[in-house]
Computed example of a mutant assay.
Amino acid sequence: MVAMVYGMNVPLNLHANGDAAIDAFLKVHETVAKHDLGKERNITMIHSQFVRNDQLQKYPKYKILPSFYTLHTYYFADAHVANRGQKQAEYMSPMKDAIGLGLKPTNHTDFIVLPLNQMMVLWSSVNRIPYGKDKPIGPDQRITPYQGLQALTIHPAIQYMEEKSKGTLEPNKLTDLVILDKNPLKEDPMKIKDIKVLQTIKEEKVIYDKNKV
């Protein structure tokens, strides 16, 4: 099936959560694409939750973009420590290492598994604080608020091959944006999750206004 998708020259959005699943896809890729492992094929590895560092090293070589899920550091940290062990749980959704490799990772909610709350997604990537705890899990994988915003804006546009029309505030791009009540780049990182959306604008039209709900 992977060979068929590659042959059709269409994007491949693949779910691979555990490191064994990621190994399975990397092996398939190395078999199917052995003549050109690094060709741009618009491959997104969705979740990449427990990717190992040696696997992550192959992502930029094979042009694989990870879509991480840092909300798990808040909601499911204890379960992952119990099921996967402390070391692997600490490395879940390694955003900082991915960015360090030159990748442009995205971050998602997997709604309806977890709430559709982008400020909470941003908060989890910046702080990585588990529910009921005061210390981070995998503190070396925390990223800056600006990097976290990129994972919610321009990087998804790149993954969907829509970066020419979306993702950043530039002339000739669509005015798809939100107005927030506080600046996440200046707010206390621990308070980012409390930032509220005041308005949502889609192609120059206000489609959500907090004061009119």
Rank of each mutant, 00 (worst) to 15 (best):
I99A: 02
P139Y: 08
K193Q: 11
Y131R: 15
G167P: 04
D78E: 15
K104T: 14
N83H: 08
H72L: 09
S93R: 04
I154A: 00
I137E: 08
Q57C: 04
V51Q: 01
P11Y: 05
D78H: 11
E203V: 08
P184C: 07
I46L: 10
V121I: 15
Q147A: 10
Y62T: 02
T168F: 01
Q159V: 12
D97T: 15
S165R: 11
A16H: 03
K164M: 09
I22P: 00
S48N: 05
A16D: 02
L56Q: 08
E204S: 14
K133L: 05
P145E: 06
I195D: 01
L198V: 13
H108F: 10
G38I: 11
T31M: 11
L56T: 11
P136F: 10
I154C: 01
Y131G: 00
D78G: 07
N211F: 15
A21Y: 02
G138T: 12
K133Q: 15
A21D: 12
Q150C: 12
I154D: 00
I195W: 04
P130L: 12
G132L: 11
I195N: 01
K212P: 01
I207H: 06
Q55E: 10
I22Q: 02
Y208P: 05
N42K: 09
Q49K: 03
Y146E: 13
S48W: 08
K96V: 04
M8S: 06
S67T: 12
D194L: 08
A24I: 04
V51P: 00
D188Q: 03
E187R: 03
Y146K: 12
A79K: 13
